[in-house]
């Protein structure tokens, strides 16, 4: 049984996922949250899910920042970033946020179940960021962040990165969050 929580600000999508996940044998819908701080952490604590389906565009903040923080938890659930914009540009920040999968919201239910099973088994479902995406990201980041970026993409653990850069692990985490902020994809502004 794979226990899945859904973190998405849209009630219709949460309800849809609830119905769909419950109908699939082997997968259980364990709970839902609209992505706000007050509901996400109690939900994770209470349900201890195997996997979280996480929306990228959350009104209260960045889904990837949240993903990064969820992955700091011990033990951390697997996280699939479930986005309406799961294009190539999202592969880099999703990798940095240590997401386990990246999935477009437009996929049929069968593919979603498949992805949940694969990720739960320990596979990573994010394409390596393409050359174009990396070049574009370089333009948005400070030069001092680039070595950090390279090590993160190599899969170097944060403790080791902190050693190499002679910084505190906490500073490295802050740097990652800053990079995620810089790489945030533009969405239509809420108002005006």
């Amino acid at each position: 049984m794979i226990r899945v929580v859904v973190i998405d600000d849209h009630p219709a999508l949460r309800a849809g996922l609830h119905t769909v996940l419950d109908a699939e044998p082997g997968i259980v819908f364990a709970g839902e949250s609209d992505g706000s701080e007050e509901s996400v952490w109690p939900l994770l604590k209470r349900t201890q899910p195997d996997l979280a389906l996480l929306d990228y565009h959350l009104p209260h903040g960045d889904g990837l920042q949240l993903c990064y923080r969820i992955k700091q938890a011990i033990p951390a659930p697997k996280v699939i970033v479930f986005s309406a914009y799961a294009g190539p540009a999202l592969t880099l920040p999703a990798t940095l946020a240590r997401a386990d999968g990246l999935l477009d919201k437009g996929v049929p239910a069968r593919d979603l179940f498949e992805a949940i099973r694969l990720v739960n088994r320990g596979e990573r479902l994010i394409d390596a960021p393409s050359r174009t995406v990396l070049e574009e990201a370089q333009g948005r980041l400070d030069a001092e962040d680039l070595p950090l970026l390279a090590m993160l993409l190599d899969g170097t653990p944060e403790r080791e990165i902190a050693n190499v850069l002679r910084r505190e692990p906490k500073d490295v985490q802050h740097a990652v969050q800053r990079i995620l902020g810089r790489l945030r994809l533009d969405v239509p502004a809420r108002r005006g």
């Binding site: 219709a12 999508l13 849809g16 769909v20 919201k105 069968r110 239509p188 502004a189 005006g192």
Partner: peptide
């Protein structure tokens, strides 16, 4: 921009939900 946001925020999410529901019936 407001219309774009509303389309994305609500109509498109509902479409995705409907698509998931319908596609889960296949098979």
């Amino acid at each position: 921009r407001r219309i774009a946001w509303e389309l994305h925020d609500s109509a498109k999410q509902r479409l995705h939900a409907a698509h998931l529901l319908v596609s889960s019936l296949s098979g």
